[in-house]
Computed example of a mutant assay.
Amino acid sequence: MPKDWFEWHDLYNTDAKLQQRLEIVREYIAYSLDASPAGTIQVVSVCAGDGRDLLGTLANHPRAQDVYARLVELNPQLVERGRATIESLGLSKQIEFINGDATSAANYIGAVPADIVIVCGVLGNLADENELNRLLGNLSFLSKKGAFVLWTRGHSQGIAYSETVRKYFREFGFEEINFQLTATGDMGVGIHRYLGETLSVPKEQQLFVFSGVPNKAR
């Protein structure tokens, strides 16, 4: 089992479920870019890892030059790898990788509200439904009205946790655009659109509590 999040990301090389999840997430990012109005597209990624979902999409997307993004990740090795990818794509003037706490609202100031918000690999690492509600409520600070929000949620012990997430998204003023399960049937990937109003300041400085550990990531 992986001992840290840097090792965990190496599972993308061998784990079919993660590979399928990444493929769907990239599909949704590409859809969001295609559907965004002409001009600048602002993106934020929460607990971004090494940014392979967004950066892998931009490598071959015609609107890459329109994207201005902030990725926030606590693990310095993942940030270093992500920054190297940004440099290789020639996007270092448009995309910044923050090595910091993704739960802190302060790390998004100046980059929000965004047109696309990526919260993949996050929802399965929250303690309970109350914490999920807290994060979804704070998305109104990160998201423009009409913003696309992409998320993932794994299933375990026969419980389809993604269905709970879909229900709460509806209750928090989001319209579901698409939802897919991986071919393995135990990982849900969703894309919603925010229909509510944007908050100019966060409801609280800590947007959520990340309680997951690599060997139990969901």
Rank of each mutant, 00 (worst) to 15 (best):
V119H: 04
S162C: 11
R166G: 02
F148V: 01
L195W: 00
L199Q: 14
F6K: 03
A183Q: 12
N107W: 01
V209F: 04
S45T: 08
L150K: 00
G173H: 02
K216D: 14
N215Y: 12
G196C: 05
W5M: 10
A30R: 14
L54Y: 01
L139A: 08
R166V: 03
E129M: 09
I109M: 13
E96N: 13
Y168N: 09
T85Q: 15
R26L: 07
A111C: 12
L89G: 08
G110T: 13
K145S: 15
Q180F: 06
T152H: 00
N215C: 13
M1L: 15
A64C: 07
I24N: 09
D53L: 09
Y194D: 12
K17G: 12
V43E: 06
F6H: 10
Q94H: 08
S32Y: 07
H155I: 01
W5L: 08
Y168K: 05
C47V: 12
L71H: 02
L22H: 09
Y31K: 07
G158S: 11
K216N: 13
V112D: 08
A147R: 02
A102W: 02
A147F: 01
S162Y: 02
F174K: 01
G212S: 11
T14F: 07
A69D: 05
L78S: 06
A69T: 06
Y12D: 12
E163C: 00
S143E: 06
L195C: 07
L123R: 03
A147I: 07
V149N: 02
G188F: 03
N99P: 10
G137A: 07
L89V: 11
L55S: 06
I29E: 08
R193M: 09
R166L: 09
H61S: 11
D101C: 10
A111S: 15
R63W: 01
L58K: 05
L78P: 03
E163T: 05
R52P: 10
G196L: 01
L78D: 04
E197W: 04
N13W: 13
D66I: 02
I177R: 06
P214G: 07
E80S: 11
G56R: 00
W151G: 00
T152K: 00
R193N: 11
I118H: 05
F174H: 04
A35V: 10
L181V: 01
L150F: 02
R153S: 04
V189F: 00
N125P: 13
E131S: 11
I177S: 06
L74I: 14
V79A: 04
P76V: 08
D128Y: 05
